[in-house]
C-alpha cells in the first residue's frame, strides 16, 4: 500500500513537472515571438502584421486592409532608417502586391523592390506596374504609401492606359479615405474608330 501511494505521488509530481515544463515552453515561445515582433517593430498598435508563414506583408490602416505584398522568399535584415528613426525592411523577390478598398482589390501591382518602415508604417515601391481589375494599367518609377495620410503618391512621370486611352501625367495621388484618384498635368490620347 505504502509503495502504491509512493508511486501515485511520483506520478503526480511527474504530471505537474510536465505541465510546468509545457507552460515554460509556451511562455518561452511567446516571449520569442514577442521579441521578434519587437525586433521588426510590429508591436506598435498592431496596425501592421507580418506573416512569416505565407510570406505576406500586410498593411492595415484604421482597421482596414490597405495593401498586401507577397514576398517569395527573401526578407533582408532590417536597416536603421536615419530619417524616421525606425527600421526599414527591404523586401525583394516580390511577385505580386495588392491595394485594397473595402476588402476588394483596387489594384494589383508588381514591383522590383519595396521598403517598409516599421515605425511609420510607410511603404515605398520601386519600378511599379499597377493594374486595375478592369484592365487599366500604369507604370512609374517610384510610389509612396503614407500611412498617416492614408494615400499613395507617384511623384514622377506616370504612363498608362485606361479604357483604351493612353495617358501620361507628371504625378499621381490615390486618396484611400476620399476614394479619389488625382493626376496632375495629364495628357490623354484616345484613338477613334474611323467611320
Amino acid at each position: 500500500m505504502v509503495g502504491e501511494e509512493k508511486n501515485n505521488r511520483v506520478n503526480k509530481i511527474k504530471v505537474i513537472l510536465i505541465l510546468i515544463s509545457l507552460l515554460s515552453f509556451s511562455l518561452a515561445s511567446w516571449q520569442m515571438t514577442r521579441k521578434l515582433e519587437i525586433l521588426i517593430g510590429l508591436e506598435e498598435d498592431l496596425s501592421f502584421h507580418f506573416r512569416l508563414a505565407d510570406n505576406d506583408v500586410v498593411g492595415w490602416n484604421k482597421g482596414e486592409l490597405i495593401w498586401r505584398l507577397q514576398v517569395s522568399n527573401i526578407l533582408e535584415p532590417p536597416l536603421k532608417d536615419k530619417h524616421s528613426g525606425g527600421e526599414e525592411l527591404i523586401l525583394r523577390d516580390i511577385y505580386r502586391g495588392y491595394f485594397y478598398r473595402q476588402d476588394e482589390i483596387l489594384f494589383t501591382f508588381t514591383v522590383e523592390e519595396a521598403h517598409y518602415n516599421t515605425r511609420t508604417g510607410d511603404l515605398v515601391l520601386y519600378d511599379c506596374r499597377m493594374e486595375s481589375p478592369l484592365g487599366d494599367w500604369l507604370v512609374t518609377d517610384k510610389m509612396y504609401y503614407d500611412k498617416k495620410r492614408n494615400d499613395l503618391r507617384a511623384p514622377g512621370p506616370v504612363v498608362g492606359n485606361m479604357a483604351g486611352t493612353d495617358f501620361k501625367a507628371d504625378e499621381m495621388r490615390v486618396y484611400f479615405d476620399d476614394e479619389e484618384i488625382n493626376m496632375f498635368n495629364i495628357r490623354m490620347v484616345h484613338s477613334l474608330k474611323k467611320k
Binding site: L106, E179, E180, I181, F184, N185, I186, V189, H190, K193
Partner: peptide, 19 residues
Amino acid sequence: AKEEEKISIDGDLFTMFFN
C-alpha cells in the same frame, strides 16, 4: 489611316473616384 483619328485631352488636374 484608321489609327490616325484621335481625341486628345490635356489638363492640369485629373479626378476619378473609386468605382
